[in-house]
Design a protein around this nucleic acid. Structure first.
Length: 835
RNA sequence: GGGCGGGUGGCGGAAUCGGUAGACGCGUUGGUCUUAGGAGCCAAUGAUUAAGUUCGUAAGGGUUCGAGCCCCUUCCCGCCCACCA
């Protein structure tokens, strides 16, 4: 029979849909498995084969789990709000609602063509009022918990997207979406206090079954560092200056201070003589974007004319301003220790500031120890160090740990211990304390764009900021013709009077709505909960639904979300946990990041597949030519799923041929009824059953397909009848990869009920079939393979030695040599070491 | 500059533990079938050699009976972070 996938693939998709096989229902007799794909944004360009890679992987797992008796939830939906969708709509001059509808219609059709077992009844679309009503509700919950606050501050501003951005959305000083250089803008904006959760986000990630790379990226992004806050007195001024340092042990080496140009004390401190120069520098620094800052590595800065006093030795040190100190990290001010910090070193060199060494290297300490210096006598240490090393030229900053020197009573103390000792001294004096500082900053969630969920807040002259009561949700996004961003920092919604003007929910007086919309990252921070309780009308979710389905067992998606979506979702889950709304602290138990599909682009380089780069491959054409099963198989076979893989147009031919050969074997070969009786077939089949199961459990789906190919090659190559049992085992294991063909052949074998409907037992290998009396002994001489000998497993090492020594080839090699050693790896290899 | 991955035939990639390097597939070559073949089927396919052999996992060194795998040095590619005090 001819292998013609177009003749049956659609038929089976219709049958699965008709019978509701993909609809996940709670079933307490079966264990549940929640397999989730990161939902895509509805792009007018549709899906290319790069998108399919992750979806095929999650579908194979879902189908595998289904056939293994699990109740599987495998949903799909649309991350429809947000910049990409809105920009696409603007470009096409259509309304985002229409653009979304057109794109989802096309993409849903494409996803159905994949044969994925998505439960379409649970489909969500984040841009529908039914969904964003609850997105707004999550904002109110955050507000209720004190996690949402409004702040007037300089924010990341993308001039091209005309909206504020969260720190996570800025990459290399550029907008993550459009690559424009990000600037700063002063706006009053809503933030989520994600930094309050910094420690919990670090602690709980450790136990997750996630790629170490992602865990590390996220942990580094949160950026915990331990150190001290130290208060410096200022000369001739009542104010004090607070700094953060991770090296309190170098406090005696401070030779100047630096404030960020934006620091609030700058104006106050600056002397009249320096004022003009300082103001010029502040103005200059404010115009520089993050990108420009990176381009110029030479240090710049200006002396303020003011001095601070070192709290431990009273030394007078000059205060400078420089843009290498960042306003939004630590306290926006540092103590500079050029001898032991590279950046301070460069600055001190550039401006000829003093450099004082207060840490000696481990080598220097060792030399002093050899001289018999008593490290508990700090004066002796200072004296000895001065005599031996004091005159040594100092070529660069010494940033390692070592032993303190020139540090009064701390000299001779190891720096690790010195940290604690210095902090203790500062604490006692009330001018410092140990603190933990995080790099993670609060999450900016206001967007000055139209296509998002309106922030459910009202401003009343009398009552101030008033949250919209839950029963008045959703705050509907008005349907308007003109929605382009204003670019001024005001949201397009601000120009719509009927939207802006409302009554205060508290006092009823005329009031105004917040006109910004919520970042689309909020929509995707809770959708995995909505899938579990998709039909709940009066709440975001029913507790019993999420108690059954959540957390997600396997989450599949791209690594680009390592510190965006995945961080936000974890934060949101912890917030819900604190509110008692969910019973778990982490949303995704296991994470899998599929690699990109690359292909030669217009640029002449291998690049990630995308329509704009001119290197995308449309799955629709391939489905037409080879069928869905072949495309699915090729996307698995192309390489290790977690690694990038290069698309090869002729690669799909290979898997297509394999499927066709299997098809021919079943439809044209002779199949004997009943169990497998041929010992050779049993042995080989069970070897492959074992291999396929191992590959599946480790998600090595490329070698899983290779194993299935080898198994088929064996069965076909025998040119002998195959038993029904073996064929059925093969089809069941093929089913997750090529479900349509597996079903069609299952029916061909006479089954009345479909394969996925009846869920036949998943094959497990039996050790007894794998047992062999003989094995291939690899014979090596001095580590080089000389021969392969078929021998009995019953033979001892000594007996085997006799056997191989009798082989002419080996005997010849041993002739005239002394046998020094025999290494035997039982059941595998024997190495004769001769000299 | 820092961190994390990688580097294996003409190509994509195999190789659970340190034990036959190159599975599987593409491509190529030859054969077969055919009116035809850009279909199918069969066979060969790391380099070298007439063969035995020898050489081969980015380069160099080390540990080991034995190294793609472990250790050291260097080079190249990718990703992430980047003046984070």
């Amino acid at each position: 029979m001819l292998y013609d996938p177009s003749a049956f693939e659609q038929k089976w998709r219709d049958i699965w849909e008709e019978k509701g096989l993909h609809h996940a229902v709670k079933n307490d007799k079966r264990p549940k498995y929640y397999c989730l794909d990161m939902f895509p944004y509805p792009s007018g360009e549709g899906l290319h084969v790069g998108h399919w890679r992750g979806y095929v992987l999650s579908d194979v797992v879902s189908r595998y789990m289904t056939l293994n008796g699990y109740q599987v939830l495998h949903p799909m939906g649309w991350d429809a709000f947000g910049l990409p969708a809105e920009n696409a709509a603007i470009k096409k001059k259509i309304h985002p609602v229409d653009q979304t509808l057109a794109a989802t219609t096309n993409m849903r059709r494409q996803l159905k063509d994949m044969g994925s077992m998505y439960d379409w009844e649970r489909e969500v679309n984040s841009s529908t009022p039914e969904y964003y009503k609850w997105t707004q509700w999550t904002f109110l919950k955050a507000y209720e918990l004190g996690l949402a606050y409004k702040k007037d501050s300089p924010i990341n501003w993308c001039p091209s997207c005309a909206t504020g951005l969260a720190d996570e959305e800025v990459k290399d000083g550029r907008c993550e979406r459009c690559d424009s250089v990000v600037t700063k803008k002063n706006l009053s904006q809503w933030f989520f206090a994600i930094s309050k959760y910094a420690q919990r986000l670090i602690d709980d990630i450790k136990d997750l079954d996630w790629p170490e790379k992602v865990k590390k990226m996220q942990t580094d992004w949160i950026g915990r560092s331990e150190g001290a806050k130290v208060t410096f007195k200022l000369e001739g001024c009542e104010d004090t200056l607070e700094i953060f340092t991770t090296r309190p042990d170098t406090l005696y080496g401070v030779s100047y201070m630096v404030l960020a140009p934006e620091h609030e004390l700058v104006a106050k401190l600056t002397s009249d003589a320096q004022r003009e120069e300082v103001e010029k520098y502040v103005a200059y620094a404010s115009t520089k974007s993050a990108v420009e800052r990176q381009e110029r590595r030479e240090k710049t800065g200006v002396f303020t004319g003011a001095y601070a006093l070192n709290p431990v030795n009273g030394q007078k040190v000059p205060i400078w301003i420089a843009d290498y100190v960042l306003m939004d990290y630590g306290t926006g001010a540092i103590m500079a220790v050029p001898a032991h910090d590279e950046r301070d070193w460069e600055f001190a060199k550039a401006f000829n500031l003093p450099i004082r060494q207060v840490v000696m290297s481990a080598a220097q300490a060792e030399a002093l120890r050899k001289d018999g210096i008593d490290f508990s006598d700090s004066q002796a240490v200072d004296k000895a160090w001065q005599e031996k090393f004091g005159a040594e030229p100092y070529e660069e900053a010494y940033c390692e740990y070592g032993v303190m020197v020139n540090s009064q009573e701390f000299s001779g103390c190891k720096t690790e211990e010195g940290k604690k000792a210095v902090i203790a001294k500062l604490e006692k004096a009330g001018i410092g304390k140990a603190v933990v500082n995080y790099r993670l900053r609060d999450w900016l969630i206001s967007r000055q764009r139209y296509w998002g969920a309106p922030i459910p807040m009202v401003y009343c002259d009398k009552c101030g900021i008033v949250p919209v009561p839950e029963d008045q949700l959703p705050v509907l996004l008005p349907h308007v013709k003109s929605y382009e961003p204003s670019g001024t920092g005001a949201s397009p919604l601000a120009a719509i009077d009927s939207f802006v003007n409302t009554a205060c929910p508290k006092c009823g007086a005329p009031a105004k709505r917040d006109t910004d919309t919520l970042s689309q990252w909020i929509c995707s921070s809770w959708y995995y909960l909505r899938y579990a309780s998709y039909d709940c009308k009066d709440k975001a979710w029913r507790r019993e639904d999420i108690d059954y389905w959540n957390p997600v067992d396997l989450y599949v998606g791209g690594i680009e979300h390592a510190v965006l979506h995945l961080l936000y979702s974890r934060f949101y889950t912890k917030m819900f946990y604190d509110l008692g709304l969910v019973g778990f602290k982490e949303p995704f138990k296991r994470l899998f990041n599929q690699g990109m599909i690359t292909r030669m682009a217009n640029s002449g380089r291998l690049e990630k597949m995308s329509k704009s780069k001119g290197n995308s491959v449309n799955p629709d054409d391939l489905v037409k030519k080879y069928g869905t099963d072949a495309l699915r198989s090729y996307l698995l076979f192309i390489g290790p799923p977690e690694m990038d893989a290069e698309w090869n147009d002729s690669g799909i031919e290979g898997v297509y041929r394999w499927l066709r050969r299997v098809w021919t074997l079943v439809t044209e070969g002779e199949i004997t009824e009943g169990a497998e009786k041929d010992g050779e077939v049993l042995k080989v089949s069970h070897k492959y059953i074992k291999r396929v199961n191992e590959d599946l459990s480790r998600l090595h789906l490329n070698t899983m397909v290779a194993s299935l190919m080898e198994w088929a090659n064996f069965l076909i190559g025998r040119k002998a009848p195959v038993s029904r049992e073996t064929v059925e085992q093969y089809l069941i294991m093929l089913a997750p990869v090529a479900p349509h063909m597996a079903e069609e052949l299952w029916a061909f074998l006479g089954h009345k009920e479909g394969l996925f409907e009846s869920r036949p037992a998943w094959p497990q290998h039996e050790e007894k079939h794998l047992h062999e009396d003989d094995f291939n002994l690899v014979v090596q001489i001095n580590g080089k393979v000389r021969e392969n000998v078929r021998v009995s497993k019953a033979l001892s090492k000594e007996e085997l030695e006799e056997v191989i020594k009798a082989r002419p080839k080996i005997a010849a090699a041993l002739e005239g040599k002394t046998l020094r050693k025999v290494v035997y790896v039982p059941g595998k290899l024997m190495n004769l070491v001769v000299g």
